[in-house]
Design a protein around this nucleic acid. Structure first.
Lengths: 242, 242
DNA sequence: CGTGCTATTGACTTCAATCAACTCCGGTGG
DNA sequence: CCACCGGAGTTGATTGAAGTCAATAGCACG
């Protein structure tokens, strides 16, 4: 389910948003953020399981996640799916549609999610006037590529336990940056989604969680995770430094 | 070995380059390409095995491959390497350094290679005046991400034979676009490099080549490949559409 | 209080990695 | 010119990590 909300003048805007140290405005001068306020005129509410956009949709906007979480996934001609990322509040989805004409992935809400809509048309219009914004877009794009590279590294060279350890630490780090506890959090995604993301089966993910728990690296109860030995997890990640 | 060549006024420029329908100038108006001529003032010759740039180097230029070929690879903290791509003439390397401040990968010449140097400073300077160029950069970035996504898909969901079939077809298609035969070509990279790129061992790659040859899908003699049954290879790629 | 997901655990299989021997080829130098 | 060397590639035997299939357990929701 989708619901668009027009922002009233007194609503929270970029310049007053708690997430503006993470989202699109990072490091932009205050004046520029106010210009951004002008073009972010609506929010989108997407209920759990619904699409923010589909693969091959025309890219019409960037979406800053205000609350909730989103997964992005690729689908190939034969319907095979690969989850390419899990996005948290303060992170931006839809840059692929800004770079090319169309979105290269599906974006799906993992829980009821609220997104700030930044129309691409407006971005293009003001980007020439605001060098800070175009710098920012490049930075976001760069992050997007970095994320891809990390996933490639994970899928290409890591073994299952390394992948999962790296995944947990990555989530932990990002949640920490959001002000949540980096040691204790709720997984918003199922074992199957994690497995698909990491190129593993849900059974393997489940077994690894159990093993990590047995080795006192983590505690896990359903989707509630507690990282007990981040040092050791980190070592697992880099693994055979021989 | 590196050697920089200053371009003389009568040297081939973007506007007269045979590759200008592929490289940075794709689809740019003639006038804009001439502006591009102004800023591409030198070429770089890099001998086989040498680095075009290193991971974490500051991004100072984009490089259009004029002849030869280049591989890009990620290296993590523990020295593990993952080949992220093989680039051909007319393709552009170094965009990661334009987007972020630093290159995220190593770029290494797979044979003696000549590259057109497009200084980032100049790109930034003229990009505001040439909307076609900034559109172009976005397109290139988008392609870069597309490449990553394809690799992620390959590493994440495909089985070894699917990966190799997809790899061969991808090479074939790109060589075809360059005007070479899409059915018969020389691999510029070793079994080991292919294996690393596809998340396989060199032995597996070798075995698969042998098997494909036995099944009359390809003919292979050392690094010389001939695609005999592209239809079947393509089917292998998409595979279990069940 | 069922019903249906989601997750766990076990038994078995399979695909690709590993280890190892051997071949092929290109280059170098006697 | 041939012999030798070393790197690249092939092929075989074996191992091992993760997948598959299957049974069961735990929650969540109506």
């Amino acid at each position: 389910m989708h619901k668009t909300i027009q922002l009233t003048p007194d609503a929270t805007r970029c310049s007053t948003c708690m997430l503006n140290s993470l989202c699109i405005p990072v490091g932009m001068p205050a004046g520029d953020i106010e210009t951004l306020d002008q073009i972010v005129k609506e929010r989108l509410r997407v209920s759990k399981g619904s699409f923010v956009y589909h693969q091959d949709d025309e890219g019409t906007a960037l979406y800053g996640i205000r609350s909730g979480s989103v997964k992005t996934q690729l689908e190939d001609a034969s319907g095979q799916v690969q989850v390419t990322g899990f996005l948290l509040p303060g992170e931006v989805v839809g840059i692929d549609g800004y770079l090319g004409a169309r979105h290269m992935t599906h974006a799906i809400a993992m829980e009821d999610t609220e997104l700030c809509v930044v129309p691409i048309q407006d971005v293009e219009r003001i980007t020439t006037m605001l060098p800070a914004l175009s710098r920012q877009l490049r930075r976001l794009t760069s992050q997007e590529i970095l994320r891809s590279q990390q996933l490639i590294m994970s899928l290409g060279v890591m073994r299952s336990e390394q992948r999962l350890a790296a995944f947990l630490l990555n989530l932990s780090q990002r949640l920490g940056a959001l002000g949540y506890s980096p040691r204790e959090f709720i997984l918003r995604m199922s074992r199957e989604e994690i497995g698909n993301h990491l190129g593993l089966t849900l059974e393997t993910v489940s077994r690894l969680f159990s093993r990590f728990a047995r080795d006192n690296l983590i505690r896990i109860r359903q989707r509630e995770v507690q990282l007990l030995d981040m040092e050791m997890l980190h070592q697992l990640t880099g693994s055979d430094c021989e």
